[in-house]
Structures are given as structure tokens and as C-alpha cells.
């Protein structure tokens, strides 16, 4: 299965907030939808779910127009909640039945996911009696109770402690492994790096970066190196480079214990190594720089 979003445009009260969003995702892969607050992620997801209608553009599934109600979709919206005064199992069965799952199957699925998310013991409790984290897990279980082909999670990790986050990560990995399409938006880049092969960064209603995460990282790191001196602090080493090696490199930034440098035009790694040895530098780190997703994100959408 391949889900394609093509040139989505959306206006509210005459103001265009999406200026042609396009991306695609295939079965067995997870797509990370990234962007700052108000960038247009949730609006894009709501158009995908037919909560809003796009002014322009189309959404295709395997080349045909995508109608969300004709498919099983597990959707965890950003604004989420369930029925606080109803029992956990009862409302999960209800939500599954609204998605056309027969009652027996709905009950079976609900129990399975409650067990998987380690909250099976609460199935007959009122939702309001559960802790916030467990309520969040019930919400996630209710997303999966209809056995969805496509799973869309808007900020799924908010409100989860590290242990529960790990459980959710494992569940998402399992879903990807069994060939589901997973789209999720998050501000927590570490989770996106963990299991997203592809990312889309949206800024002010348009896609500013899209593609395979590894390739993007490689492209961003190309011609940049991580350089460290065993005998100098990062600040001392930076001063040294800016005084002694100005003909070979340019300092682009720094990490906790090393510098990020870029070779000047016509210079090679061999030239740099030779110069370092000549200047008696005891090299601690010398490797290709691979930026974190966070670095790429800040560079792309930061002010």
C-alpha cells in the first residue's frame, strides 16, 4: 500500500495555512511529520482524516482517491479524550463497533491490546479512576482496537513516562514490522529517529525537507568533520583552529567535547591530518559529522 498526499492547500477565513503539502508513505514504513507549533501538521492530519476538507490537492491510496471511512484507520488526535464515566472495556468495544468491527471481535481485540499495553487489569474500571499515563494507554489501545491498516498518531508520547514510552515504541515497531503504514507527528525527535525511515518537516504550511532520514543526515554531514584535541578544551582548540588552521578549515560549531569543522575548497582530509600533525596536535576525534535530527530540524525551521 502506498499513501500519497499531493499538493494539499487549506485556507481558514481567507488565510492560507497550507501551501501545497506533498509526501508519501508505504506499508511497513513509518513517516515522521515534524514541524514547530502551528506549522500545519495537525491540519494536514485532519485533512487526511476528513475532519477538514482541503481547498486543493488530493490524497491517494494505491493511486485511487483515499476515503478514510472505507478503510480501518487508527487515529490518535492531538485533542484527545474518552468517556471518563464509562468502563474502559465498554468504551473500547463501542469505539471499535463504530468502525464496523463486530462486537465479539471488538471485545477480543480490546482485551488483547489492553494486555499488550499492560493495563488489562483495569478493563472494568471507570476511565476517570485511572492515572493520566494509563488513560493515555487506554486511548492508544482504542486506536488499535479496530485492527487498522493505517495508523496516524498525533503526539503519541505526550504524557507518557519513559517506561510507558518504551512500551509504545515497541508497539509501533511491531506495527511497522507487520506491514502497517504509520504516520506520526511529534516534537520529540529522539522517537522519530528511533523508528522513522522517512521524515517530512513542515514549516509555515509548506514542506521544507522531505526524504529518507539516513540520506538526509548524510547529506547534511557531508564535508563536515568532528575534530577533537586530547590536550585542549573545546574553547582552546577552537581558538587554536581559528588562528593556526584558517587556510584549511572553517569552524562551523561545536559539541560537548569536539568541534564541527568544514574543509575549505580544494582542501582534503589528508591535508588537514598533515597540518594537525605538523602543529603537534594530539588528535582525539577525527570523523565524519552526522547531524542529529534535532540539529537538522533547528537548522530548517529555527528563526
Amino acid at each position: 500500500m502506498k499513501l500519497e498526499v499531493k499538493n494539499l492547500k487549506k485556507s481558514f477565513a481567507g488565510k492560507e495555512v497550507l501551501h501545497g503539502i506533498s509526501f508519501s508513505v508505504e506499508s511497513g514504513k513509518a513517516l515522521g511529520l515534524l514541524g514547530r507549533n502551528g506549522a500545519g501538521k495537525t491540519t494536514t492530519i485532519r485533512i487526511l482524516m476528513d475532519v477538514f476538507r482541503a481547498n486543493e490537492g488530493e490524497i491517494l491510496l494505491d493511486g485511487k482517491p483515499f476515503v478514510p471511512r472505507n478503510h480501518q484507520i487508527g487515529y490518535l488526535p492531538e485533542e484527545r479524550g474518552l468517556y471518563p464515566k464509562r468502563k474502559v472495556l465498554e468504551q473500547m468495544v463501542y469505539l471499535a463497533m463504530l468502525r464496523n468491527v463486530p462486537k465479539t471481535k471488538a471485545k477480543e481485540n480490546a482485551k488483547k491490546w489492553l494486555e499488550r499495553l499492560e493495563i488489562g487489569q483495569y478493563e472494568n474500571n471507570l476511565l476517570e479512576t485511572l492515572s493520566k499515563g494509563n488513560q493515555q494507554k487506554v486511548q492508544l489501545a482504542s486506536v488499535l482496537v479496530c485492527d487498522p491498516e493505517i495508523i496516524i498518531l498525533d503526539e503519541p508520547f505526550s504524557g507518557l513516562d519513559p517506561v510507558n514510552s518504551q512500551i509504545l515504541q515497541d508497539v509501533v515497531k511491531e506495527l511497522i514490522a507487520v506491514g502497517k503504514i504509520v504516520i506520526f507527528s511529534s516534537h520529540q525527535m529522539s522517537y522519530v529517529e528511533e523508528f522513522c525511515e522517512d521524515i517530512v518537516i513542515i514549516n509555515q504550511g509548506q514542506v521544507v525537507l522531505e526524504g529518507n532520514l539516513n540520506e538526509i543526515k548524510l547529506a547534511y554531514g557531508r564535508e563536515q568533520l568532528i575534530l577533537g584535541d586530547r590536550n585542549k578544551s573545546v574553547q582552546e582548540f577552537k581558538q587554536f583552529c581559528e588562528q593556526e588552521l584558517t587556510e584549511i578549515l572553517q569552524v562551523c560549531g561545536q559539541t560537548k567535547d569536539a568541534l564541527i569543522v568544514k574543509l575549505l575548497e580544494g582542501q582534503t582530509r589528508k591535508d588537514l591530518l598533515k597540518a594537525l600533525l605538523e602543529k603537534n596536535v594530539e588528535v582525539e576525534q577525527f570523523e565524519t559529522y552526522k547531524p542529529s535530527l534535532n540539529d537538522i530540524f533547528v537548522e530548517k525551521v529555527g528563526d
Binding site: R46, M49, D50, V51, P68, I73, Y75, P77, E79, R80, G81, L82, Y83, P84, L95, L98, R99, S142
Partner: peptide, 12 residues
């Protein structure tokens, strides 16, 4: 009020 509406209108 309990924010369940979005899940519901996307289901039915």
C-alpha cells in the same frame, strides 16, 4: 467537553 469528538467524527 471530554475531547472524544474528533475520534468519533472520524469513525462515524
Amino acid at each position: 467537553s471530554n475531547r472524544a469528538i474528533e475520534v468519533l467524527v472520524t469513525s462515524i
